[in-house]
Amino acid sequence: MFRPIAETRPGPSLGFTFDGRAMTARAGDTVAAALLANGVAACRQTPVSGAARGPYCMMGVCFECLVVIDGIGNRQGCLVPLREGMRIETQAGRRQPDEVRS
């Protein structure tokens, strides 16, 4: 999807998982940017039809990049800074009762 440009300032990288897959991204990225940089196009399914959606505006307006982060759903990935060890998951339609209970 997205790749780093040739000339960037060097910086530390962070490890995280997306739906269980191990990934890394640059410290300072938002969750949505980290997913794009790892080739993830879709990060949620809509509650109405279940269609796949991915980040659209990257500035907190569209709510398309909603993901589950460390068990908490409905987080706007483009506004949350990535942290080491984050467990990020696809937000599947309406959330399930077990998740909600957390």
Binding site: P4, A37, G39, A41, C57, M58
Partner: peptide, 23 residues
């Protein structure tokens, strides 16, 4: 609404804040 369709501004934000461009 398809994944992969974004605003131009979104790509600009990815570039400014993360040094990313569409691959």
């Amino acid at each position: 609404t398809l994944p992969g369709v974004m605003t131009a501004g979104a790509a600009q934000i990815a570039l400014k804040s993360s040094g990313l461009v569409p691959s």
